[in-house]
Amino acid sequence: MAKRILVLNGPNLNMLGTREPGIYGAHTLGDVQALCETTGQELGLSIDFRQSNHEGELVTWIQEAQSSADAILINPAAYSHTSVAIHDALKAVGLPVAEVHLSNIHQREPFRHHSYVSAVAVGVICGFGIAGYRLSLMALAEKLS
């Protein structure tokens, strides 16, 4: 049976391709989803891909993942730097978590250098654009094998 990966995307990622392409690139969220689905097929993973601008909805999906997923890949976006709620939900479900960011958050504004999610993630990939999703899925597949 295929391992199930919940891929979560936080606020403003629905604006990919038009929002600050100099930082986030020209790819759309649809491109990211297609990459994740193709990579999932190659690795024998089942991908559940979602995006929300609402912190509470992300928390609910994380909680539901406890019974419906084997791991979580999350780009918490701005919630990386502010959400104790997402941190607590990820910690509570006890699943392997990979954190991904399109840009290198450590080369940006100082407030972006800290992520509450990193403390509960098995790994963090940032700065490689949408390829970071592929790298994260590969790492999670290895972790789950």
Rank of each mutant, 00 (worst) to 15 (best):
M1H: 07
A2C: 03
K3A: 01
I5P: 00
L6H: 05
L6E: 05
L8I: 03
L8V: 06
L8T: 04
N9L: 06
P11M: 09
N12E: 07
N12C: 00
L13W: 12
G17F: 14
T18C: 04
R19N: 09
R19P: 09
E20K: 13
G22S: 07
I23W: 09
Y24P: 00
Y24D: 01
Y24T: 07
G25N: 07
L29A: 10
L29Q: 12
G30T: 14
D31I: 15
D31A: 11
D31G: 07
V32D: 14
V32I: 15
A34Y: 08
A34V: 13
L35A: 11
L35S: 03
E37N: 06
E37W: 06
T38G: 06
T38Q: 15
T39D: 05
G40Y: 05
Q41K: 14
Q41C: 02
L43C: 00
G44Y: 09
S46C: 03
D48T: 15
F49A: 03
R50G: 00
R50W: 11
Q51E: 12
S52D: 09
N53M: 09
G56I: 13
G56E: 11
E57A: 01
E57S: 00
E57D: 08
L58D: 00
V59S: 02
V59H: 08
T60E: 14
I62E: 05
I62W: 04
E64A: 06
A65Y: 09
Q66C: 04
Q66M: 07
Q66A: 14
S67M: 11
A69E: 04
I72M: 07
L73D: 03
L73Q: 06
N75Y: 08
A77T: 12
A77H: 08
S80A: 10
S80K: 10
H81M: 05
T82F: 05
T82R: 10
S83G: 01
S83Q: 03
V84A: 09
A85R: 10
I86H: 12
I86D: 03
I86M: 12
H87P: 00
H87A: 00
D88P: 05
D88I: 13
A89I: 14
K91G: 04
V93E: 11
G94C: 08
L95W: 15
L95N: 04
L95S: 01
V97D: 03
A98M: 15
A98T: 04
V100G: 01
V100A: 01
V100Y: 07
V100R: 13
V100P: 03
L102A: 07
L102V: 14
S103F: 07
S103L: 06
N104V: 02
I105R: 10
H106M: 01
Q107H: 11
P110L: 05
F111T: 13
F111Q: 11
F111K: 13
H114G: 02
S115D: 07
S115K: 10
S115V: 15
Y116F: 15
Y116E: 10
V117C: 02
S118G: 07
S118Q: 10
A119L: 09
A119I: 11
A119K: 11
V120I: 12
G123N: 09
V124P: 00
V124F: 05
V124T: 12
V124M: 05
I125R: 06
I125F: 10
C126H: 11
G127M: 12
F128V: 15
I130H: 06
I130V: 14
A131S: 10
A131M: 14
G132M: 15
G132W: 12
Y133I: 13
Y133T: 08
Y133W: 11
R134I: 00
R134F: 01
L135H: 05
S136H: 03
L137N: 02
M138W: 03
